[in-house]
């Protein structure tokens, strides 16, 4: 064995032995960012009146988590998000499945569906407000419109990437359309479908909280805006951090779901 080969082996072993798991490094990265933030405030780089120190936020956290207002805000945002997402998932998947059955219609709509990504749907919000009035209906509608586009697009991609053998199998077993969809095609498309659903949820949540921030009377987004307008900086930061934690939490939940289902597939 030559020296060169040894070098190659050493190179391939070192990372496996010398490195922490990725999640641990991730924790270190986040901790470093928080420390930098803390030092910036403590060192007077930014005024603690405009940006509170992370430790102050941490101290305030239990107080806010103990209030009923926080949980009712969170529940309100979550309910709006889930309603919009559920509608987007159902309609997006069905429409995607329908469009793959109607290739000519799909070809007509294709540039518009792709173009829908380019449209900042949330700007329609004032028009919904005028038509539907205050309340959650305009928020749900806006969040639905944001979420339905990625669900529809990934459904179409997932169904078009189905293995031809699976389609042929379904035909050779003389399946009805419903049997083919339920027993073979849908589960086969699921690994590609799930990321689209995840993105749809993410978009629904972002739209909900975003619109709440601008015009609403409850919800996490509304609360952050309210605290901002009242100059309650520490409470505002705590709510923003809580919002980020909730969003990251749901992201991990979907990742977990994905892994569980994919392991099932595996």
């Amino acid at each position: 064995m030559s020296v060169l080969d040894l070098g190659g082996i050493r190179m391939s072993i070192r990372p496996a032995l010398g490195r922490m798991p990725a999640w641990a490094t991730r924790v270190v990265v986040v901790a470093a960012l928080l420390t930098a933030w803390h030092l910036a405030v403590a060192g007077g780089l930014v005024s603690s009146l405009t940006v509170p120190a992370p430790l102050d936020c941490l101290r305030r956290l239990p107080g806010i988590l103990g209030t009923a207002a926080f949980w009712s805000d969170a529940a309100r945002s979550l309910r709006t998000t889930v309603e919009a997402f559920a509608a987007a998932a159902a309609i997006g998947v069905l429409a995607g499945a329908l469009l793959t059955r109607l290739p000519v219609v799909a070809r007509i709509l294709e540039p518009y569906i792709v173009g829908a990504y380019a449209v900042p749907v949330v700007v329609f919000y004032p028009t919904f407000l005028v038509v539907f009035g205050l309340g959650t209906a305009p928020i749900v509608l806006t969040a639905f419109l944001m979420a339905v586009v990625p669900v529809l697009m990934t459904t179409m991609v997932a169904l078009s990437e189905l293995r031809p053998t699976h389609r042929k199998l379904a035909r050779s077993l003389a399946c009805t359309r419903w049997q083919a969809f339920r027993s073979i095609l849908l589960p086969s498309a699921l690994p590609l479908l799930l990321p689209g659903l995840k993105l749809g949820f993410v978009y629904a949540m972002a739209a909900t909280v975003g619109v709440e921030f601008i015009v609403a009377d409850a919800g996490l987004g509304f609360r952050i805006g309210e605290l901002y307008r009242n100059f309650e900086t520490v409470d505002m930061y705590v709510h923003i951090l809580a919002m980020i934690a909730v969003a990251a939490g749901f992201n991990s939940l979907f990742n977990l779901l994905e892994r569980v289902i994919r392991k099932d597939l595996a």
Binding site: V209, G210, M236, I240, I244, A247, A248, N251
Partner: peptide, 15 residues
């Protein structure tokens, strides 16, 4: 780190 921040509406960072 990046994919989990996708769900955070940017507008809440405005303050």
């Amino acid at each position: 780190l990046f994919s989990s921040t996708a769900a955070v509406p940017r507008i809440v960072l405005l303050p």
